[in-house]
Design a protein around this nucleic acid. Sequence first.
DNA 1: GCTTTATATTTGTTATAACAAATATAAAGA
DNA 2: TCTTTATATTTGTTATAACAAATATAAAGC
Lengths: 220, 220
Amino acid sequence: MTEIIEDVENKPPLHEAIYKKLRLLLETGALAPGQALSLRNLAHSFEGSVTPVRDAVWRLAAEGALYIGPTRRISVPTLSRNQVRELMRVRALLEPEAAILALDNITPEIISQMRAYDAELNKAAMEGNVGEYMANNHAFHFALYSASNSDVLLPLIESIWVRFGPYMRHAYPDVAGMEGVEDHHAQALEALEKRDAIALKRAIKSDIGDGEQFLLHEME
Amino acid sequence: MTEIIEDVENKPPLHEAIYKKLRLLLETGALAPGQALSLRNLAHSFEGSVTPVRDAVWRLAAEGALYIGPTRRISVPTLSRNQVRELMRVRALLEPEAAILALDNITPEIISQMRAYDAELNKAAMEGNVGEYMANNHAFHFALYSASNSDVLLPLIESIWVRFGPYMRHAYPDVAGMEGVEDHHAQALEALEKRDAIALKRAIKSDIGDGEQFLLHEME
DNA sequence: GCTTTATATTTGTTATAACAAATATAAAGA
DNA sequence: TCTTTATATTTGTTATAACAAATATAAAGC
C-alpha cells in the first residue's frame, strides 16, 4: 500500500514550548524581578501538567534566568548592583570575542540587516517604545554574534542577556533620552565595513559600558 | 509540651542529590563522551523515579554538561576541536577575571591551601594518578576563584570545567609526562604573594593555554 | 489594635501509568 | 552474505495523585 508520507507536524515537546515562552516573557521584561511563580499556575497557563513545566523551569534556573529560593520557591531573579556589574563585565569579555569571530563571516547582507535594526531601534527610542527598542537592540547585537557560528559563545551570551530582561523594561520607563554622546552602534557598523577588528571590539565594549551605566543609574 | 527541636536532617530533594552525583560523574570523567544515558536507567541507579531525574538532566543539559540529541536522546556531549578551542578561550577570558577579583580577598591561608593542592597535584602527576591529579587541579583553581566571592563568575566557570570532565580522563591516560617547561601554578602562587595582578593574569592564562594544547594534542 | 495561635490553602516533590516515537532485534527475502 | 522487513523493546513525554513542607488566612488571646 502506497503510504503518503506527510511528515505531519513533527511537533516539539510541550516542555520545549514552555521553555521558549517563559524565556520570551523574561527577555521582554514581562515578568518583574522578584515575582513569584508556581508550577501549577504555569502548568495551567500553558494548558499542560506540572512535569513539562518542571523541565522548563529547571532549565531556566540552570541558566540563572529563574531563581530557586532556599525554600524552593520559584521566582524571577533579583540583581544586586554588584551582580549587574559582574554580568556586564562578562558581557564585555565575551561579546567582543564573538564579534571578532563574526568578522570573518560577515556579509554585506548582515551589515545592512544590522543597519535596519539600528534604524528601528533609534525610531523606537524617539517614540519611547521600550519593547520595540529592546527587541531591535537584541536583534542588532545577535545578528552580529550569530555570524560567529559559535555554538559555545552564543548560548553563553544569550544566557547573560536573559538575566537583564526583567530589569530592562522596568528600568527603562523612558528610553527617549538615553542616546549617549557617542553612537557606538554606528561605530560598530563602520568598523564592520572597514573590517577593523580593534575598532569593532572597542565599539562593542563601549556600548556595553553605556548599558551598564544606564542600568546602574536607573537602579537608584 | 516542650518540643525537642531536633532540626532533623533537613534533607535536600532527590533531584538535587541526583544532579550532584551526575555532575561529579561527569567532572571526574566517569562517563565517556558520546555515552548514552536513559532516564529509567538513571532512575534505577539512583533508586528513584523518573521525575527527579528529569529535573537533574535538564539542569545539566542547560549547562552544556549533557547533550539532548535531535531525537531527544540523552548523552554525554562530544567536543569538536573547535569547540575545545572556544571553550578554552572562554576560560582564558573569565578565569583571569575571577583571579583578579580574588586578589582583593586573598589570605595567607588560601595561598598555603593552594600550595598544598599543588604539591598533591604534582605527586599525582608523577605517580600517573589521573583522578588525583584532576581533583587537585580543580581544587587549586577553585580555591583561588572562590575568593572572588562572585556568584556570577563562579557558576559560569564551573559549567565550563564540567564540559571537559569526560575528556580529561580519557585524554590523559598518562599524566606523568605532562609537566610543561614552565610551572604556571608556581608563577600564580608567586604572583599572589606579591599581589601582582598582571603576573597573576598571565600565569592563569598560560596555564589554560597549556591545558588547551595538551587536550588538543591528545584528541589526535 | 496588636501579637500569637490554629486552620486552611498553596507549594514543591515524587512515584506511577499510559502513550508515541525511536531504536534494537529477529525474521525473511534476494 | 547482505539487505530488507517485521516484531519487540527501550526511550522520552505527559498527566495524575498522594505526601510533606511552606505560606497565607482566620481566629483567639491579651
